[in-house]
Simulated scan of single mutants.
Amino acid sequence: MRVVIFSGTTEGRALSAETAAMGAETVVCVATEYGKTIQEHVAGTHTLSGRMNTDEMVKVLKEADLCIDATHPYAKEASRNIRAAAEAANVPFYRLLRRESELPADCILVDSAQDAARFLEHTEGNILLTTGAKELSVFSAVKPQRLYPRVLPVQESLAACEAIKIPRGNVIAMQGPFSSELNAALIRQFSIQWLVTKDGGAAGGFDEKAQAAQKTGVRLVVIRRPKESGESYEMIVKRCREMMECK
Rank of each mutant, 00 (worst) to 15 (best):
Q189P: 13
G132N: 08
N53P: 06
G8E: 03
F6H: 02
G23A: 06
F6Y: 09
R239A: 00
P177V: 12
F119S: 05
N53T: 10
E102W: 14
Y94F: 15
A210Q: 04
H122N: 14
N183Q: 08
R188K: 10
A159P: 00
N90K: 15
T9M: 04
E121R: 15
Q214A: 15
T37R: 15
L128N: 12
E124G: 15
D111W: 04
G125H: 14
C246E: 13
V218K: 06
C29T: 00
A43T: 11
Y74P: 00
C29E: 00
L147W: 03
V142P: 00
A163N: 09
A160L: 03
T47R: 03
M174K: 12
R239N: 01
P153I: 05
G12Y: 04
A173W: 02
Q39Y: 14
K247H: 13
A210E: 03
K76Q: 13
R219Y: 13
F206G: 01
D199T: 04
T45V: 07
A213S: 10
A159G: 03
V237T: 05
T71E: 06
A20V: 03
F93K: 09
Q193V: 00
G217Q: 07
I192V: 06
S157I: 01
M174W: 03
K209A: 02
E162Y: 12
P153Q: 12
I172E: 05
T10N: 10
E25F: 12
A24Q: 06
E124R: 15
I108R: 14
V222H: 07
V60G: 08
V138I: 07
T32R: 02
D69V: 02
V4Q: 10
H41D: 10
K134H: 07
K143M: 11
A203I: 10
Q214I: 03
D106G: 05
V28W: 10
R219C: 11
R51Y: 04
R98I: 00
E245M: 15
E242P: 06
L66H: 04
S101N: 07
P167W: 12
I192G: 00
V237G: 03
T26L: 09
E18M: 14
M244N: 07
N170P: 01
R2F: 06
V142Y: 13
E102A: 14
A184D: 00
A113T: 09
K59N: 13
V138E: 00
L195E: 09
E245D: 15
R224K: 13
D111S: 14
L48Y: 09
V110N: 06
T10C: 01
A24K: 01
I192A: 08
F119V: 07
M244Y: 12
A43S: 14
V218D: 03
A160H: 09
Y94K: 04
V3Y: 11
G23E: 05
P144K: 10
T71Q: 06
A105N: 11
K227V: 05
A21T: 04
R118L: 10
